[in-house]
Write a protein that binds this DNA or RNA. Structure first.
Lengths: 191, 191
DNA sequence: AAACAAAACTAACGATTGTTAGTTTAAATT
DNA sequence: AATTTAAACTAACAATCGTTAGTTTTGTTT
């Protein structure tokens, strides 16, 4: 019984390289070389370069989907839900930094069916997020403001968290978990 | 005297394609075909594919640099400065959507010297932004919160504004100009 | 009409791409 | 020890890449 099988190892290494140089800039020979083998040997473990990308992107996308499906129907305030979503983004960012970067940068290089699966998950996620936010505004838990702008601002920050996290890892994760929800939800200007 | 010379036309078309598919996924033949000519003909106007990328990225980067260099030393509140910076991002987003997308997605494909120029401009920009923010916190114009998290959150939203803008152009630009600063600076939760 | 410049063309180059076929080595199972 | 399986290898393929050289077409200026 292997702790990590070769396919997983290939995908993890691919994610690291894709993140650094982008999907199209990483050749199968680059990837093989990083693993200390020849390019042809990769095909004993994976079907194609495209399969590697789809495993990376869809795995993370499913994790987001699963979480929001769990949070969405709960009987708590919209603020609590938003906080839970933010925490989840932070955790995925920490645990799957490279995968998340691939999802952000290279999803458009997914082939037809994989691309459609991804886009569906992404739309469903945004739709649930939107409903939570609108619900909070209706119940006066959140300020009434253009919801699309708020959605965009929060989701964009969460999606690109990995850019910042890998640069400033000196700051404690706990500080991030405490201060990011404040920044995103409570605002900035003194009052 | 030409209204738009051929080189400019090539660069504009390239930016459009780079944005959609990424720098590495767009071949010189793709670009030529989009312009109705053959790939070799492009080289009557440009030196290399790399030159196209650097013209796109560095042109936008210089525009940001110029603006913050103008705002930075002014004798106004830090809030006013931040508002001006946000307005500038919105304007560049509207006027140079494709260029901005290229800067965000493909800057890492710049070759050595171009890459260094870009990174220097980017660092200088962030440094000035940071100083404006810290100054505002010292003067109690802004809430005291982890500045790196705030910087990240605001800059990330501004940088990726183009993603949202091109999707939701139905919303008036004026709404964006009014609501985005509020969202980024005033926060969300009712009080 | 002749001369010139600009901008397109055809053809081809060497390098690199993802991938396949067939073979050999190493490890696990009988 | 013999057999089977897993995972590496070499070699090569057709396609595509950015780019160059040399030529022809087009449009403008003398």
């Amino acid at each position: 019984m292997k702790v990590t099988d070769r396919k997983t190892e290939i995908i993890l290494t691919a994610a690291k390289l894709f993140r650094k140089k982008g999907y199209n800039a990483v050749s199968m020979r680059d990837l093989a070389s990083e693993l200390g083998i020849k390019a042809a040997s990769l095909y004993n473990h994976i079907k194609s370069k495209q399969e590697i990308l789809s495993e990376i992107v869809l795995q993370v996308a499913e994790r987001f989907t699963t979480h929001i499906d769990e949070i969405y129907p709960q009987e708590v305030s919209s603020i609590k839900k938003l906080e839970a979503i933010i925490q989840n983004h932070i955790e995925i960012t920490i645990q799957q930094t490279d995968f998340l970067a691939c999802l952000n940068n290279d999803w458009m290089h997914l082939a037809e069916e994989n691309l459609q699966d991804y886009l569906k998950m992404r739309n469903d996620y945004e739709e649930k997020f939107r409903k939570i936010l609108l619900d909070g505004m209706v119940k006066n838990e959140l300020e009434n403001r253009n919801p699309e702008i708020v959605i965009f601002s929060i989701l964009t920050t969460l999606r690109t968290l990995y850019l910042w996290y890998s640069k400033k890892s000196s700051i404690e994760v706990e500080v991030l978990k405490k201060d990011l929800p404040k920044t995103l939800l409570n605002g900035l200007i003194q009052n």
